[in-house]
Amino acid sequence: MKLAVTHLGVVIDDRSIVDDVTIELRPGTFHGLVGPNGSGKSTMLRCVYRALRPSTGAVFLGDDDLWQGLDAREAARRRAVVTQDHPLDLDHSVRDVVLMGRAPHKRMFERDDRRDGEIADRSLETVGMAWAAERIVTTLSGGERQRVMLARALTQEAPILVLDEPTNHLDIRAQLELLEMVRGLGLTTVAALHDLDQAASLCDEISMLREGRIVVSGPPAEVLTVEHLRDVFGVRAHLGPHPLTGRLHIAVAPLEPTDHDSPLDRQEPAR
C-alpha cells in the first residue's frame, strides 16, 4: 500500500513545527527521515500515526485521507507503528502486549480467538521472541522489548509501517538486528533515524529535514552528501565506501572551534 504525505503543516502555539512537507512512498519501499533534533521528523510521523492532527495538508494511506476518510480503527488496520523504547509501567505478559495488535480488528466485547493467538505467535517467531511469550514485558532488555513492539506492529497485519526512532537507547547490535529485521519484512516503511550510516545502508530513499522543511529528498547517495551534512547538521563529513561492505559510509570529523558556531544558531529565531 502506498503512503503519501502532502503539503503537511503543523503549527503549535503559533510556531511552525512542520512546514509544507510532501513525501510519497511507493509500496514496499523503505523511506528514511533524517535531520537534527527538532527538525520535525517525529512531529510529522505523529500525524501519520494519528496522535497529532495536522494544521494543513493531508496524509494518505492507500487512496484514503487518514484524517478525513478513515476512523482510528480503520487507520490502524493499514499502518502500524513502533516508537522509541519507553517502558510500560504495567506488568503485561509479552504475549498480551503482542495481542494488543489485534485491537483494530476487534469490535466491542469481541474476544481474541484462536486465529488472533496464531497471528501473535507467528509475529513473535518472526522477531525471534517466541521464547519470551510468557515473560513479563518489563523484565526484558531494551532490545528485546523493541522486538516485542515490532511483533505487536506485525500483529496489526498492516501494510504500512511507521518507525519513530525505534533504535534509541539500544546497543549497536540490537539496533542492527531490529532494523535489518524490519528491512526484511518488505513493508512500506517510513522511519525517522538518527544514525546516518544506518540510513544510508537501509533506505531506498531519504528525506533530509531542517526546521520542519524538507531540504532534499532522493536516493541515499544524492541526499547524504558532504554539502548537505555541513549545511543541515553542521558537521564535516567524509563519504566513501565502507571498508568491509563497500557500501556508502559516512565518517564524521570532530568539531573544530569554528564549527561551534552551528548553522542552527545563525538562523533567524522561528516566528
Binding site: Y49, A51, R73, E74, A75, D89, L90, P104
Partner: peptide
C-alpha cells in the same frame, strides 16, 4: 495503558 501514542497507533 501502553501510552497515548501507542494507543493512537493501535486504533484508539
Amino acid at each position: 495503558s501502553a501510552g497515548d501514542d501507542a494507543a493512537s497507533a493501535l486504533g484508539v
